[in-house]
Design a protein around this nucleic acid. Structure first.
Lengths: 233, 233
DNA sequence: GTGGGCTGGTGACTTAGGTCACTGAGGCAG
DNA sequence: CTGCCTCAGTGACCTAAGTCACCAGCCCAC
C-alpha cells in the first residue's frame, strides 16, 4: 500500500509517535485514514461513542463543552502534529467533549483497535501517550484554577498575554496582537459571554493598559497587566 | 524480603494493579514503602517535584488546589485501593495540585523509577494506567462544566444528591444523609465559601426540599431537586 | 447602490456570589 | 463549671457577572 510522504512526516513530527522507527510509522500510517474538513466542521460531539484516535495533520481544532443554554467552554485548542481524544480510546467511554475545526483541516484517523495494538506492541508508545495526557490534565487543572479563583478581568488579561506571547509582534517596547478571533470566541475560551469581553476590553483601554482598534490590539503596559495576575490569585 | 499480606491484598484490589500475577505484585510490593499518616496531614504540595506513585491502602485523601487568598478547590477525593498522582510520574513535571489525608491513612509509596520499570515490563499495566487516568480526566472535565455552566445552588444540590446516593439511607421515601464534613469542606468541594453553603442549605430547607438538623439532612423532595439539575444546564 | 447577516459597543438593570462582622451553639480541656 | 475553640447562622453590604435591548459598523450578495 502506498502511503503519502506527508502523512509519514506528520506522524514523525507528532509528539505521540516521535521515536518510533520508520517501519512502525509505516505500519500505523497504512492503517490510518485521512479526512479533510472545512472550517467550523464538527469532528465529534460530546457523548458520541469513541471510535478512535485523531491526529491533526494540518489546521486547528477546538475542543469544547457546550451548555444547554448555548454557552460554550473551550477546553483546548490543538494544532498540527497533535493528537486528540487519546483517552477515551483507552477507557472505552464516550467523548467527554465536542470537537470542531477552526480552520480547514486534515485529520488522520486511527481506529481504536489499531491504536491499542500499536501500544501493546510498543511499550514506549504507551508511555508517550501518558506523557501527552499528562500535559492535557495539567491544562484542565489550570482551567479549573482560573475558573474558581480568578475574576473575568484576570482571565481576559491572561488570555491576551498568552496569545501575545505565542503570536504577537513586539516593536519598540509595545506588542501588537492580531486577535484573529471574535469576541464571542474569546468569551467561550475564558468562560464568559461576549458582552463582558467587549466591556472589559474597553475598560483595559480606558485605563491605558492596552490600545485596541478593530481586530488588533497593542499592549501598552505589559508590566501592569502581569502584576494584576500575580497578585491576588 | 517479607511483605505483609495486607499490602499484597491491597495491591490486588487496586484497579491499577488488578490483573497482574502474584509474582509481579510481589515484586512491586517489595519495592514499595508503606507510610502512616494522621488525619489532615499533607502528603505533598502543588509544585513539589513528583517523586513517585502513591497508592491508598487505607483511609481517604483529598486532592486540591489552593489560592493565595486561602480558598481551596477540591479536585478529587480518593479512598482505599486507588492510586493518586499517576500522571506526574510519567510527564516528569511537578505535582499540579496538593494532597492531604482526610482521616488517618496508610499510603503505599512506589518510586518513579520502579513504577516506570513495572510499566515497561508490563504493557498491560500501562494500559491500565491510561484507563484510570481516563476516569480522572473525565471528572476534571465534569468540574469545569459545573463551574462554568451551573449556579452555586445547583452545585450544592448536585453534591447532596451525589453523597446521598453514595452513603445515604433511604427510609420510607425520604433519604437521610449524615453530612460528615463541615460546611467549609463542602464549600471547597463545590467551589465557593462557607457562608454561601450555609445560606443555600437554609434556603433549600425553607423551600421544603430538604430538612436539615445539625450534621444530618433529610431529602424530602428528591424529584424537585433533580429537576433543578436537569433543566437549565 | 441597498438590504441583511454578522460583529462589536453600550446603557440600564438584575442578581448571584462574595465579604465582613457579629452571635450563638456544641464540645472538650483544664 | 468555666473558658476556649471550632463550627454554623445571619444581617448588611458590595460588586462582579450576566441579561436584555438596541444601535452602529462592516462586508458580502444581489
Amino acid at each position: 500500500m502506498i502511503v503519502s510522504a506527508r502523512i509519514l512526516s506528520t506522524l514523525r513530527s507528532t509528539p505521540l509517535f516521535a521515536g518510533l522507527s520508520d517501519a512502525e510509522l509505516q505500519a500505523i500510517a497504512e492503517r490510518a485514514v485521512l479526512k479533510s474538513f472545512g472550517p467550523g466542521e464538527l469532528l465529534f460531539s460530546e457523548g458520541d461513542p469513541c471510535s478512535g484516535l485523531h491526529v491533526i495533520v494540518g489546521g486547528r481544532v477546538r475542543i469544547f463543552k457546550s451548555s444547554r443554554s448555548g454557552r460554550e467552554q473551550v477546553l483546548a485548542i490543538e494544532g498540527s502534529g497533535t493528537s486528540i481524544a487519546e483517552l477515551p480510546v483507552f477507557d472505552g467511554g464516550a467523548f467527554p467533549a465536542s470537537a470542531s475545526t477552526i480552520e480547514a483541516s486534515e485529520i488522520l484517523f486511527l481506529s481504536r483497535k489499531d491504536f491499542r495494538m500499536a501500544c501493546v506492541e510498543n511499550p514506549e508508545l504507551a508511555l508517550k501517550v501518558l506523557q501527552v495526557v499528562g500535559g492535557r490534565l495539567r491544562r484542565l487543572v489550570g482551567i479549573i484554577e482560573e475558573l474558581s479563583f480568578t475574576t473575568l478581568r484576570q482571565r481576559l488579561i491572561s488570555w491576551i498575554l498568552r496569545e501575545a506571547k505565542a503570536r504577537g509582534q513586539t516593536r519598540d517596547g509595545s506588542t501588537f496582537l492580531e486577535l484573529g478571533v471574535t469576541h464571542q470566541e474569546i468569551a467561550s475560551q475564558i468562560g464568559t459571554v461576549r458582552e463582558l469581553v467587549s466591556r472589559n476590553m474597553a475598560r483595559l483601554q480606558a485605563q491605558g493598559l492596552i490600545e485596541s482598534s478593530g481586530h488588533e490590539i497593542t499592549i501598552l503596559n505589559q508590566a501592569a497587566l502581569e502584576a494584576e495576575l500575580t497578585s491576588e490569585i
